[in-house]
């Protein structure tokens, strides 16, 4: 169990350190407010009691981990899934637009990449713009897309999915262009000696060679897609979704809610990346890839 000793122990001990630090900071950050409360109530609690109080405020500056965990557990497992306070429901709302946008973005990215690899004009004219567009803060467009599409009567899933599409197709395009070009000259020459047509070379050499690149960039894309869906929910006062819940939490200073929503978002992100990774491994094995 080398990987166990190499990875698990350091990771868990660092995570444990983070939790301890979190508790310490929770006490330090919540202390001023608690002291204020106690002074007004005329109480002088003992130190242990004081610390206990700082860790159980209803709207703490920094909620303690167990508060977040309890809130997360309540909102995930104890509420009916249809309730709009349920994290499962909100995560599903965000997840659905993430997945729709991710599917569109991956498809679009692959199509553009195929075009760029095969049409020299596109390679020379479009590729520089795609690279340049990665340097601009695209998320700034999100509110406008939502509001403008709402003005012409398109609301709900599609506008959010469009932002996700926009964010997720760049990594896929760049990765796929790299992947489709990854076969070596030797292999291309071999296809040449077989008298293979362009489409045969594409399907039998370029596509298989690009699959690992595709899944690597899809991992990046699915994470970006989730960020796009969350930010897409911010500006419109959306009623449901992880972004909407973050915004509501910010308005009403429900810090515990914000943290547990963040945890939910992270869980969704980790699951998505994991699913893409597993899919990649399955495809790799189905294609006869051997573990390196």
């Amino acid at each position: 169990m080398d990987s166990f000793r190499d990875k698990l122990i350091p990771v868990t001990s660092i995570l444990a350190g983070v939790v301890v630090l979190w508790y310490v900071f929770a006490v330090i950050l919540n202390a001023p407010f608690q002291r204020d409360l106690d002074r007004r109530a005329g109480e002088t609690p003992a130190l242990s009691e004081f610390i206990g109080k700082t860790l159980s405020q209803p709207k703490p500056t920094l909620p303690a981990p167990h508060q977040v965990a309890v809130n997360f557990f309540e909102n995930t497992f104890l509420r009916p899934v249809t309730s709009n306070r349920s994290l499962v429901y909100n995560a599903w709302v965000t997840l659905s637009s993430t997945l729709l946008g991710f599917a569109f973005g991956t498809g679009l990215g692959i199509i553009i990449a195929v075009g760029i690899v095969h049409v020299a004009t596109l390679d020379r004219s479009l590729m520089p713009w795609i690279i340049a567009s990665q340097t601009i803060p695209i998320l700034a467009v999100a509110p406008m897309i939502i509001v403008v599409l709402a003005a012409i009567g398109i609301t709900g899933l599609v506008p959010k999915a469009m932002i996700s599409t926009y964010l997720s197709f760049f990594p896929v395009t760049v990765g796929m262009v790299k992947g489709l070009r990854s076969p070596e000259i030797m292999h291309l020459d071999l296809m040449h000696t077989y008298n293979a047509s362009a489409s045969q070379t594409f399907w039998k050499l370029r596509v298989p060679a690009s699959v690992p690149f595709l899944f690597t960039s899809m991992k990046v894309a699915v994470a970006a897609s989730l960020v796009g869906a969350i930010v897409g929910e911010l500006p419109t006062g959306a009623v449901a979704g992880i972004g909407a819940k973050l915004l509501a939490g910010a308005y009403y200073s429900q810090s515990i809610d914000i943290w547990s929503t963040l945890v939910a978002g992270s869980v969704v992100a980790a699951l998505l990346v994991m699913v893409v990774g597993i899919a990649g491994r399955i495809v790799d094995r189905a294609m006869g890839g051997r573990p390196a």
Binding site: V227, I230, V231, W259, T261, G265, S266
Partner: peptide, 11 residues
């Protein structure tokens, strides 16, 4: 790096 870190903004 895969997490939606942007969510810490309200905090």
């Amino acid at each position: 790096s895969a997490l939606p870190i942007i969510g810490v903004a309200p905090i």
